[in-house]
Each structure stands twice: as structure tokens, then as C-alpha cells.
Simulated assay, not measured.
Amino acid sequence: MPLAARAQEAWPSRPVQMIVAFPPGGQADVTARPTAAALERVFRQPVPVVNRPGAGGILGSASVARAAPDGYTALMALSSLGVLPESERIMGRSPAYTLDQLVPVARITADPTVLLVPAASPWRTLEDFIAAAKQRPGAITYGSAGNYSTLHVAMAMLTGSAGIDLLHVPFQGGGPALTALLAGTLDSLASGPGPALPHVREGRLRALACWGRERIPGFEEVPTFIERGHPEVEFYIWSGVFLPVATPAPVQERWRQALRQACEGDEALKRALDAAGSPLAYQDGEAFRDFFREDTARLVRAVQRIGRVE
């Protein structure tokens, strides 16, 4: 048997890294950790999650794009992955990575974002929030995981539809932005439902509306923007696994099979994501590639509408 074939059959023969391009506590991290634990049971190798934040997700994503294409470094990405190269171009910079350097393997979750405010805030409904923003243009703050991040794009959709002006405060990731909201130093935030759910259940945060076409499990009392008269405000944070594009096809297929096995058969993974309010929405192969292409095109159009952010 040729050496190359034996090497492929033996893969993986050492630990496999899963890179999260954001700090701990955000949506990518919440998804990556139980997914990595499930993959350890499939691969029979350690799958450490490595947080590599910076520049709204650019640094960690670029590190995987440039990694050795041997399958031992993967990226747990969010939908911002497709937006960041375009935002760099808008800002007059050369992108740190391009989408043709990465290959989509599988989508794990796909959650509508939720509009959150501190429970101590005076806004009990979406209409309260919009009315206050109209009374005080530019005074109410909202956080994001960085300029042109998914959380920024989601809020830009709302401000455009509602005709309001909010003050954008970028952070290094969704986790730090959520921490600031909990501390009361931030007025509002678009968040994935997973990180938000425990704080809403504990009464520390209030959810005013969600960006989904339908209400979200765990947030059944929270209306959609569509219900409240904003039909164009629809947005999802999805998480998915990507590899360097030159990763050998048999290794890509091993990843796809392992992720499918984990997502379809690992009850601990399902329970962890359900408990986090971010249920599985598995997709792989051509279906995920088509979804990624279409979603990226839509988000790039939104970023182009935002334009240059100084």
C-alpha cells in the first residue's frame, strides 16, 4: 500500500485544533466547545478549542486560511466570515484572507439574533426602544463584535428599517459586548440566542424582538421584527466548520463524516446546544456550500450599504 494512502487512513494521528476567531463566551465559542468534545469521541484524539480574537474575527480566520492544509487546523466560523474581506476592501485595505482560501465543510447552527437590553432599562417593548431612539438620536448605544461583524450588520438592518440613529460601540467579540451589556455600560445588543438565554432566564436581560422569520425556541414570548412591521429585518448567525482550501479531499471527507456523525448521533452535543438556546441546524456538502454563497452575497450587499466606517 502506498505511503500516502496509509497516512490518509491513519488521520488523525495527533490532536486537532479548532480555532475560534473571537473571545470566549460568544456564539462561535458556545458552539465550538461541545462540538469539539463530540469530535474527540469520533476522532479519538484531543480537539482543543483555541480562541484567537482580534479585528472582529479577521485575525483568527486569516490564521486558518494560512494554516498547513493537513486537516489539523479547522475554523469554527460565523456568518461574518464572508463579510470581513469586503469590509477590508471598503476601508481601503488588502483583505487578510479571501474566501477562496477556505473550504466550507459543515454548518452546525443557524440562529436568528435577538435584540437585548438590560432588565433595568425603561424599554419593555420594541416600540419603547424605537421611540426612545427617535427622541434621542445617537444617544442610545449598541455593541457588536466589531465593525462589519454579524452583530453590526444585524443592527444596521434595524436602524435602516426603523429610521433611527444609534451609537455603535465595537468590541473584540460578542462575549465582551455581552459582558458590557450585563454591566450596564451598554444600552443594547444584537446577540445570538445561545449566549443570551441564561441571562434572560435569570432576569438580568430583556429580549425585545428577534430577527427570525419565526419565534425562537426558548424565546417564545419574544416577537419577530416581521411581526412588528419590519418585514426586511431578518438575519441569522450561523456557525460552521471550514478548512484550508488545499486540505486533501479524503481529509475533508473525514471531517464531514465526523461532523455528521457527531451532530446526528451525539446526544451530549445536542443537549449542550439545546441548553444554550442554539439548536442544531446541520448542513453539509453542496447544500452548505450553496447556503454559504447565497448568505455571503446578501450580507456583502448589506455591508456595502453601511459603507466606510471611520
Results as ranks from 00 to 15, higher is better:
residue 23 P to Q: 05
residue 123 W to K: 04
residue 80 S to T: 15
residue 202 E to N: 10
residue 48 P to D: 07
residue 298 R to D: 15
residue 267 E to A: 14
residue 139 A to S: 10
residue 236 Y to C: 05
residue 289 R to Q: 12
residue 272 A to M: 08
residue 57 G to P: 08
residue 272 A to R: 01
residue 186 L to G: 10
residue 287 A to E: 13
residue 226 I to R: 00
residue 226 I to G: 00
residue 133 A to C: 05
residue 294 E to T: 15
residue 249 A to C: 02
residue 247 T to A: 05
residue 16 V to E: 03
residue 294 E to C: 00
residue 119 A to W: 13
residue 13 S to F: 09
residue 185 T to E: 12
residue 220 E to R: 01
residue 70 D to M: 06
residue 27 Q to D: 14
residue 180 A to Y: 09
residue 213 R to L: 15
residue 310 E to S: 11
residue 309 V to D: 09
residue 235 F to M: 00
residue 83 V to C: 06
residue 279 P to H: 09
residue 41 R to F: 06
residue 259 L to R: 03
residue 160 G to A: 14
residue 219 F to A: 05
residue 181 L to Y: 01
residue 179 T to L: 12
residue 92 G to Y: 12
residue 100 D to W: 12
residue 302 A to N: 10
residue 3 L to V: 15
residue 197 L to W: 06
residue 98 T to P: 10
residue 231 P to A: 05
residue 264 E to N: 00
residue 63 S to T: 08
residue 279 P to S: 08
residue 28 A to Y: 13
residue 256 R to K: 05
residue 264 E to Y: 09
residue 250 P to W: 13
residue 251 V to S: 07
residue 173 G to R: 01
residue 302 A to V: 13
residue 273 L to P: 04
residue 75 L to A: 02
residue 87 S to R: 09
residue 25 G to W: 07
residue 103 V to E: 13
residue 159 T to P: 04
residue 124 R to Y: 11
residue 264 E to S: 09
residue 72 Y to W: 00
residue 67 A to F: 13
residue 267 E to H: 12
residue 162 A to R: 09
